[in-house]
Design a protein around this nucleic acid. Structure first.
Lengths: 211, 211
DNA sequence: GTCTATACGTCGATAGAC
DNA sequence: GTCTATCGACGTATAGAC
């Protein structure tokens, strides 16, 4: 009668098993990213992810309680990477950079990465899906804005940028870039001129001195 | 047994009846706008709309096949009005206006109307709902961008604005304004300074000469 | 309005880990 | 030997086609 209880306590998840489970979770998320980049949310079915990860559908539910959880996990994973890339490009780390150089680098990174992976970018920015994804997008946009905000604040502080509310300018810039990219991304055309136009717009908008 | 069939064929919709049906459709749409402004999409149930319009729920289905159709009808109705207001504000009609005056008027109108009716603006711009509404939003944003585009093109043509792609700038501006408004709208705070900040951002972004 | 098809989530069986 | 992770097929709901 107590056999279940005692033996259950006796069983412990060993480090090896835990590591394997963790690796599996990572593998499933990566598979989902692959599917998302290729087929968008429209193609992101549990079956497709399971197939891509080479596991059974039931196995996916061991790590994610349902599709919603999987979707948000993948979304966050991708966004984290994108934000990090843009933050690095616009970072103050390379000291001695002018505001012009930093803004240019950040915008080019943002837009350039999007245009190199248009399907994924469209998915992140605009593909009509559902309320849960919309809510994630709001967070995503804010995360981007925050990386811009500190850079702008510093530019204003050291007089390289004219007086302005860094939070507003950063938010506006993220909205501007996102909105402009939606068109080209939706139609899969990589219009060459869009990135330079966007950089010029951003430089003017932040009041970066000409040349 | 045939009574239904014969009377159906014999029955013709008179102009008076048609007019009443049209009026009722308009009344239902207006009721839906009221509900939307007050409770957002979350409160936009067929029952709530019917109650607001003082008709039975079944009556709503006479003019709209389902909730999706009602939602898009209302969305389009509201958007048409907003676009017209902004277009009028930034219009070339008042000839002799400088680019600065027109940009300022358009942005102030856009943002001002949004902040006067925050719930409705939040609904139009950002409230997470579903794919159908998201798709409508994309059209909505483009409609706005087109009104800005012609004004910018003219400003560039007559040399009041520096060379730039009017389509890109217009799209970017719509994205910027929308993104900035989402924050204040979501939290129902009417931060005083946001409109002037937004105007300043827009003037810089389009390259309007200082003062 | 009905019908089909697609996809989510579950369940029992099997194989392997402890 | 016991327990658990994995598999894959099935039930069900919903959306889209005719």
């Amino acid at each position: 009668m107590n056999t279940w209880f005692t033996s259950c306590v006796a069983y412990r998840r060993t480090p090896a098993v835990q590591a394997r489970l963790d690796a599996q979770a990572g593998s499933i998320v990566r598979a989902a990213m692959t599917v998302l980049s290729r087929d968008g949310f429209a193609g992101l079915s549990m079956a497709a992810v399971a197939a891509e990860a080479a596991v059974a559908t039931g196995t996916v539910y061991k790590t994610f309680s349902g599709k919603a959880e999987l979707v948000t996990a993948v979304f966050r994973e991708v966004v984290t990477g994108e934000v990090a890339a843009v933050a690095a490009a616009g970072s103050t780390a390379g000291a001695g950079k002018t505001a012009r150089e930093r803004v240019t680098a950040a915008v080019e990174t943002f837009a350039g990465r999007a245009l190199k992976n248009p399907k994924l970018a469209y998915v992140l920015l605009a593909e009509p899906v559902d309320a849960a994804v919309d809510a994630e997008r709001l967070r995503f946009r804010r995360a981007f804005a925050e990386t811009f905000e500190s850079a702008i604040a510093e530019g204003v502080a050291i007089g390289q940028l004219p007086p302005q509310d860094p939070r507003t300018s950063a938010t506006a810039l993220v909205g501007a870039i996102g909105e402009v990219l939606v068109g080209p991304l939706a139609e899969q055309l990589e219009s060459e001129s869009v990135v330079p136009e966007l950089v010029a717009f951003a430089l003017r908008a932040l009041g970066v001195p000409q040349e």
